[in-house]
Design a protein around this nucleic acid. Structure first.
Lengths: 193, 193
DNA sequence: GCTCTCACAGACAGGTCTGTCTAGTGTTGG
DNA sequence: CCAACACTAGACAGACCTGTCTGTGAGAGC
């Protein structure tokens, strides 16, 4: 590997540019030309590396998935019990609402107008399965009688608060509402804390 | 008014075509040419009537808003108490999940990649305010201590179930999960029924 | 030195997009 | 009969889209 001033590879710069532009403005609105210009990369490099815009979008979403999974997994280590970890997921994700760059869930936005077979749909499915499995696993550890059903409801709260935050944009109120919703679900499924 | 075979006006045919195509495939994906072809209308008629695609999108969403408001308002008459009316909103909207043409909330989809100032954003704001006011009004009638806060949480469940249904697509389970979530919120805010 | 790989720069093709404009048609009311 | 009106048909402009292609240059390994 290069020892001095290692300029990021074309692939890395493309992913960074795609992440920024696709998330801020949307995968349909942003064209290839803007991505390569922002990345300082030749068009041929994009097509050699990813093959198509659809694959670039998929890679962008997979990167988002990996970043969220890492942030949540590492953040949850600070919460002692399964029950607190579930609420912790809302806290960790809700902390992002304060960021004025927050634009809602990238998977919901990118797949809102996806055609059947689009790469964004596969990436979103994988992400949503991970969220559901995380909630179900924690619910099982917390002793929920039906961890799968509780996970479904937690995911509804998880999606709903992201949508509400994007469209209505009241960080403190939306985080509190989502967290409160999750707490009520836990009280109902597990008994009051 | 015409007595026989009154062919719908260009405006009506445009709105019908826009409603079908925009909802099924998305407002960004569907171009003007496809709308006018499907409506059997000249391009000039579209621009004389609506002025721009953005205004057509706004009119499409306003039509959706009016239809939902009518369906929900009329449907709620059958529910006796405010508490049952709140659950009724989920039942009435959830009934649409059975329809294989269901594609999620049109406002979430249309605004997912909207640029600031787009007509879709204004239409979505109006729609969301109506939903929130409806929930808040029913919550107040039901005796909730903080109707506004309860309405926010009900809206999170309302949005979340639409997203989950669009992306995961399990009509019976998603309706049950959303309705159960709303019922828990009511139990927590008002005491068990 | 020499080749091989990677990446840059940018022209180009072929298509689609929104929006404008001209010109013609049919109906209706006076 | 005729003028107003709403609509149709479609060419056109200008921009943008994705994806392909050619040619150039810089650095690494032999």
């Amino acid at each position: 590997m290069a020892v001095h001033t290692a300029r990021p590879s074309a692939r890395e710069r493309l992913l960074a540019a795609a992440d920024e532009l696709f998330y801020r403005e949307g995968v349909h609105v942003v064209g290839i030309d803007r991505v390569i210009e922002h990345a300082g990369v030749a068009k041929a490099s994009l097509y050699n590396t990813f093959g198509s815009k659809d694959e670039l979008i998929r890679a962008y979403l997979e990167g988002r998935h990996a970043a969220i999974e890492k942030r949540v997994t590492e953040g949850l280590a600070a919460y002692p019990t399964p029950r607190e970890k579930i609420l912790g997921v809302f806290d960790i994700q809700g902390a992002r609402f304060q960021n004025p760059e927050y634009r809602g869930c990238p998977f919901i936005s990118a797949t809102a107008e996806a055609m059947p077979g689009a790469g964004s749909l596969a990436a979103a499915d994988a992400y949503r399965s991970w969220v559901r499995a995380l909630f179900a696993d924690l619910a099982r550890q917390a002793g929920a009688p039906d961890p799968g059903a509780l996970a479904q409801q937690l995911q509804i709260a998880y999606d709903g608060v992201a949508v509400k935050m994007r469209m209505d944009g009241d960080p403190a109120a939306d985080l509190a509402a989502g967290r409160g919703l999750a707490a009520m679900l836990l009280d109902a499924a597990l008994g009051p804390a």
